[in-house]
């Protein structure tokens, strides 16, 4: 959506379908024909563009109106607006949920298929033991050989299936010129401003001066950061602090530290948090951190954590730096 389009939507004569709370009785009348009313102050408005009717898309904006008047009456109004950040966040989260359900399905199928390998292995092993117990001219020795080779065929069918069912959603994104870690963090933190406000969370970012550039797809880096920050917000009580640091280590690695003052992770659970389908949340898919780790590993990075129950959790992300 270009800026031009936003302007036309805000222009009275071309206003699309509006579900705005600024068309109320207690508003100023700016103009009679065609009528335009505004209410002063900051509001959230939702605009559905006429040309978008088929797709029923609506965009949320945070607007701020100031009416300018003098003794003769209203001269006009001054309006500023920006796309509402959490609307953007919701969109990203929706995408993430869709992504996760596809991965869940694939992962589930793959892990069931994988489990077949254990019985195949024990059957194959016992057959080898049986094979040794027969004399060379015993017909049964030949039968056992056939069973073993058929089992091996079964195993290669499983491997073929597994390689076709591999998660292509976790494949590395297209390599670009690199992604700025600081800028991406700032962008994601901006998405969460509303969430921070709701829980009165103070989010402090502390970055090294040099711009940290990593060869990670920006969309995937955003997904990782949303996962981790969302987890932190959910784990924290009202008024807690979140600290995000980004710095270079040995000029080769970029470290991102996300430290919350949340409920922490039980010592027994620390080893399991990256396992698929492990979740302590009521509605968690158990895939957020699994996917996060997969993506990071794809880029030759790593993720680890420190956590104390009742005090909080710190996640450390390491990515190879391309420049700083």
């Amino acid at each position: 959506m270009g800026d031009e389009r936003r302007h036309s939507a805000m222009n009275s004569s071309k206003l699309g379908k509006c579900n705005c709370d600024y068309f109320t009785q207690n508003t100023y009348t700016i103009r009679q024909d065609p009528p335009l009313y505004v209410r002063e102050g900051s509001h959230r408005i939702l605009i559905g563009y006429e040309d978008d009717e088929a797709s029923s898309n609506a965009y949320a904006y945070d607007v701020d109106f100031s009416v300018i008047e003098d003794a003769t009456g209203i001269l006009g109004c001054f309006a500023t607006y920006e796309e509402a950040m959490e609307a953007k966040l919701q969109e990203l989260q929706k995408k993430k949920a869709q992504n996760e359900s596809i991965i869940a399905e694939k992962q589930m199928a793959a892990s069931y298929i994988h489990e077949i390998k254990n019985p195949i292995f024990s059957i194959r092993g016992f057959l080898q033991i049986l094979h040794q117990s027969f004399n060379e001219d015993d017909k049964r020795k030949e039968y056992v050989n056939i069973i073993i080779s058929e089992l091996d065929r079964m195993n290669s069918l499983i491997n073929e299936f597994l390689s076709k069912y591999k998660d292509d959603s976790l494949v590395k994104g297209e390599g670009e010129d690199g992604t700025s870690v600081q800028k991406t963090i700032e962008e994601v933190v901006a998405f969460f401003q509303y969430g921070f406000k709701l829980k009165n969370i103070t989010c402090k970012c502390d970055f090294s001066n040099d711009e940290l550039i990593v060869m990670v797809d920006k969309e995937q880096l955003i997904q990782i950061l949303i996962n981790l920050i969302q987890n932190s917000i959910e784990a924290m009580k009202t008024g807690a602090n979140l600290s995000i640091k980004a710095y270079a280590k040995d000029k080769t690695m970029c470290i991102v530290e996300i430290k919350d003052e949340g409920i922490g992770i039980r010592q027994d659970d620390i080893n399991k948090v990256f396992n698929p389908f492990f979740s302590t949340k009521e509605n968690g898919t158990g895939l957020g951190l699994y996917i996060t780790k997969k993506i990071i590993n794809n880029y030759g990075g790593s993720i680890y954590l420190e956590s104390t129950e009742g005090k909080g959790t710190t996640f450390y992300l390491e990515f190879p730096l391309i420049s700083c």
């Binding site: 292995f121 024990s122 092993g125 016992f126």
Partner: peptide
């Protein structure tokens, strides 16, 4: 943690 895998390997290694 797979019972029969464990038993089978045990058998082979004892032999």
């Amino acid at each position: 943690d797979e019972y029969w895998v464990k038993i089978m390997l045990q058998e082979v290694l004892i032999n």
